[in-house]
Design a protein around this nucleic acid. Structure first.
Lengths: 193, 193, 193, 193
DNA sequence: TATGAATGAGAGTTCATTCAT
DNA sequence: GATGAATGAACTCTCATTCAT
């Protein structure tokens, strides 16, 4: 069937570069080159670099939330849901380091306009996690905590460790191997009743 | 005596702006203006914007480490040291929001050269925290964890919550008020034996 | 019968936009949108944006010349022809401000290639007016002047006043009301024997 | 001593290029090159291309107004002032064709933001001319006309003829030679009592 | 005929940095 | 020590134009 669609190539290239190098270090020319697409095409599908970044982050969040919601629909017991949520969250380390890194990149938009839209997006994601925590808390699966604040804390933990795990040094290597488990354990101890 | 030293004014202005707006959104002109100093002076004291940023971050880390080491010298028992370390870490929320925000900014250097130097700095800081954790762990004050990874997790938690606490909306307000306590509690539960 | 012809819609939309906003501020996308036509259609009927602009200007000139020639065929005496020519020229203020504005837009082609073709068009138009002036002059209806230069002067007068009349402020309003008469009078005094 | 100041070179180069090619056809790179200055220097002295263009036009207007006011201060009789004003206005044809052309360029700003500022500038200039006309009218030196509208008409006449005089063909050559005199005569006949 | 996705040169602008004074 | 005019590479974004369907 032919080469992958242009739109798909753009999003994929953006995701890789934004995750790998961050927003500012990634130029539209870089994206166009990696996607093997003209700069004009970038702007055919996205109004601006900001919109492209937001689209990439939105997609990353939605994929993760879809997974989490699927688990909830399966009716797993509270602690299990939590562990799975965290597992899925950190599974990216091994499978797709780049997508995981993206979560570490959302904390520094710097540009006021982008920051506003991005933080709304992050908030939405955090609130979805908070909702899960709240439910688990209601069923006694975890201890009482401030759900949204805890959600942000979990995201921050994941982001920091993931970014550190991106390097090529032994420590990064170790983080990539043990990160998911250690973080899940830390999170579990932080939240268990 | 007399007017505050030029160097001091530069560092102070940089600290405020980098913390408030981040690395890329802060221009050398902005710093020069706020510090009431010529651009030339900036380059008299610092080789580059990168170096200036690193100096600011280094100073922030050193201040916090000095406080932590002072506590250790007082021979407090393990859990107490940990609580104080965390308290000191989060006390900035109320006293000096800007310095606290800076810790949320160190995760997005983006530029390869800066990233390398900055991550070395962060590593140093994380390792100092890890050393404290390790000692507490040796004395049985906390449960066995991967010290460095746990240190990064703590830093990430703090950074994410702090950045979210910078806004003007009710959630930010709430985070500023409860952040320190909630985070300390989450951390303590995550680490206690 | 049926929907207006595509070609007609394109020319009409172009005329409106070029007159209203000028050549550079009008994009092919804007024209396509207003004409409810695809960009491809624009290029099916016109080789380029330049050609489209030229076609619009050419049509505007031809309409006016046709009116002037009709008057000449009616054998009106010299001064009458002149007044009518001017009247027709300025009648657009009230009836169709946009077409009138277009005459103020032909002075700034800026692009060398377009300028060359456009100025040839303007020259043609000016020469037609000059011919009328020359005839009137031969019959003693007006005083001896340099016909072509006077034609350009008349066009410039009309263009400048018309563009100023396009605004929404009181002066523009006043210009729209009194412009035709005042200009006709100025022109008549300038040319009468 | 030494080479001409950078600011002066920028303004001079801008004046030439804007007059010769118009606003859109003149790029900041072109100006920088002709002025033998870096692009950065352009922005050191002018906030934007718009501001640079406005500065050039403003200067051109002010120079002409200064000349006109000097004549008024000398207390010449009405008609004389008018003739001189027109003479000075058109003298540029021979002495400095480029500055004269600039007056033909101010009618097509096209960009809404630039248009607003530019038309305010043109209005100011036209009003100064209108004031002169009004005074001459009060003393009976010219017949009653709408001063501002007449001012715009005069400016339009001058602009159109000047732009046509810029070419290299025989007509342009002729316009350059006879333009000033013919226009002064047309204007005088249009306005005399 | 008609479409609109795709192109890419070129636009205005920013900003860390240098250096003569 | 201190200054700020000068630099220019690199940025995001626009837009007339092409062409496979």
């Amino acid at each position: 069937m032919g080469e992958p669609l242009v739109l798909e190539r753009i999003v994929e290239a953006s995701r890789k570069l934004f995750a790998r190098k961050g927003f500012h270090a990634t130029g539209m020319r870089d994206i166009a080159k990696l996607a093997q697409v003209s700069i004009g095409s970038l702007y055919h599908y996205f109004r601006s670099k900001d919109e492209l970044f937001l689209a990439v982050v939105r997609r990353a969040f939605e994929e993760r939330l879809a997974q989490a919601r699927e688990l909830m629909r399966q009716g797993l017991p509270g602690p299990e849901i939590l562990r799975h949520v965290l597992d899925l969250h950190f599974a990216g380390f091994a499978a797709e380091p780049e997508a995981a890194q993206l979560l570490g990149r959302v904390w520094a938009p710097e540009d006021p306009a982008l920051w506003k839209k991005l933080s709304a997006l992050v908030d939405e994601y955090a609130q979805a996690i908070a909702a899960i925590l709240q439910e688990a808390q209601a069923s006694g699966a975890i201890r009482p905590v401030h759900p949204l604040l805890a959600a942000y804390a979990l995201l921050g933990m994941a982001g920091a460790v993931t970014l550190r795990a991106a390097g090529k040094d032994p420590v990064a290597q170790e983080f990539r191997e043990k990160g998911a488990q250690e973080l899940a354990e830390l999170a579990w101890h932080a939240l268990r009743p």
